[in-house]
Amino acid sequence: TFTSIVTTNPDFGGFEFYVEAGQQFDDSAYEEAYGVSVPSAVVEEMNAKAAQLKDGEWLNVSHE
């Protein structure tokens, strides 16, 4: 299960995956970082959410 939350205070020191406002979700980078295949429906969902981000916001993507 993939989830996401919007934050204005990303923790770059941890093992977190963020999408910056104005960027798209990079499923290849996510797969490389976590060894998890990302279904195309999830990629579309995360890109739709990322498109709604305002300046200074980040989308924190995770999975269980």
Rank of each mutant, 00 (worst) to 15 (best):
T1S: 12
T1V: 13
T1F: 12
T1Y: 13
F2V: 03
F2S: 00
F2C: 04
F2L: 04
F2K: 00
T3L: 11
T3A: 07
T3G: 07
T3E: 06
T3W: 14
S4H: 07
S4P: 03
S4R: 00
S4E: 02
S4D: 03
S4I: 07
S4L: 06
S4Y: 12
I5R: 08
I5W: 14
V6K: 03
V6W: 01
V6N: 02
V6M: 05
T7S: 07
T7C: 06
T7M: 06
T7K: 03
T7A: 04
T7R: 00
T7H: 03
T7G: 01
T8G: 06
T8K: 11
T8C: 10
T8P: 06
N9I: 08
N9R: 10
N9D: 11
N9E: 12
P10Q: 04
P10I: 05
P10C: 09
P10Y: 01
D11A: 10
D11R: 06
D11H: 12
D11W: 11
F12C: 08
F12L: 10
F12G: 05
F12A: 05
G13W: 08
G13D: 12
G13Y: 09
G13Q: 10
G14A: 11
G14I: 07
G14F: 06
G14K: 11
F15Q: 13
F15R: 14
F15D: 13
F15M: 12
F15E: 11
F15S: 15
E16L: 15
E16W: 14
E16M: 14
E16V: 08
E16D: 12
E16T: 11
F17Q: 03
F17Y: 09
F17V: 04
F17H: 04
F17W: 09
Y18V: 03
Y18T: 01
Y18D: 01
Y18E: 01
Y18I: 04
Y18K: 03
Y18F: 09
V19I: 12
V19M: 06
V19W: 01
V19G: 01
V19L: 06
V19N: 01
V19E: 01
E20V: 06
E20C: 08
E20M: 13
E20Q: 14
E20W: 13
E20H: 09
A21F: 13
A21D: 02
A21P: 07
A21T: 05
G22Y: 07
G22I: 01
G22S: 05
G22A: 04
Q23Y: 10
Q23D: 08
Q23L: 08
Q23W: 07
Q24F: 12
Q24M: 15
Q24T: 12
Q24N: 11
Q24L: 14
F25L: 04
F25E: 03
F25Y: 03
F25H: 03
D26Q: 06
D26F: 04
D26H: 05
D26G: 04
D26S: 08
D26M: 06
D27W: 15
D27M: 12
D27H: 15
D27P: 15
D27N: 14
S28P: 04
S28Q: 14
S28K: 15
S28H: 15
S28Y: 11
A29T: 05
A29C: 08
A29Q: 08
A29N: 03
A29Y: 07
A29L: 11
Y30T: 00
Y30G: 02
E31L: 11
E31M: 12
E31A: 12
E31D: 03
E32L: 14
E32M: 14
E32H: 13
E32C: 12
E32Y: 10
E32F: 10
E32N: 10
A33L: 15
A33C: 14
A33H: 12
A33I: 15
Y34M: 08
Y34N: 06
Y34H: 08
G35P: 01
G35S: 07
V36D: 03
V36Q: 05
V36W: 05
V36C: 08
V36Y: 07
V36L: 08
S37T: 14
S37A: 12
S37Q: 12
S37G: 12
S37V: 11
S37N: 09
V38D: 04
V38N: 00
V38F: 02
V38A: 05
P39E: 03
P39I: 02
P39D: 02
P39Y: 00
P39V: 03
P39Q: 04
P39L: 04
P39N: 03
P39F: 01
S40Y: 11
S40E: 10
A41D: 11
A41C: 13
A41K: 11
A41Q: 11
V42N: 02
V42F: 07
V42K: 03
V42W: 06
V42M: 04
V42D: 04
V43L: 08
V43H: 04
V43C: 07
V43F: 05
V43E: 05
V43I: 12
V43A: 08
V43Y: 06
E44P: 00
E44I: 11
E44S: 09
E44D: 12
E44L: 11
E45T: 06
E45A: 09
E45K: 05
E45Y: 09
E45M: 09
E45F: 08
M46W: 11
M46I: 15
M46R: 00
M46Q: 03
N47Y: 02
N47A: 06
N47T: 11
N47D: 07
N47G: 03
A48N: 13
K49R: 09
K49Q: 14
A50L: 09
A50R: 00
A50F: 00
A50E: 03
A50S: 06
A50I: 08
A51G: 09
A51V: 06
A51F: 06
Q52R: 05
Q52M: 11
Q52N: 12
Q52C: 11
L53Y: 04
L53N: 04
L53P: 01
L53C: 06
L53T: 00
L53H: 02
K54A: 09
K54M: 08
K54R: 11
K54L: 09
D55V: 14
D55I: 13
D55R: 12
G56F: 04
G56T: 03
G56Q: 03
G56K: 04
E57A: 02
E57Y: 05
E57S: 03
W58K: 03
W58P: 02
W58E: 02
W58T: 02
W58Q: 04
W58H: 03
L59R: 00
L59W: 00
L59T: 02
N60P: 00
N60V: 15
N60K: 15
N60S: 14
N60H: 15
N60A: 15
V61Q: 01
V61W: 00
V61N: 00
V61M: 02
V61E: 03
S62W: 15
S62F: 14
S62M: 12
S62V: 10
S62R: 15
S62Q: 10
H63M: 07
H63P: 01
H63R: 03
H63C: 06
E64K: 14
E64Y: 13
E64Q: 14
E64M: 14
E64R: 10
E64F: 13
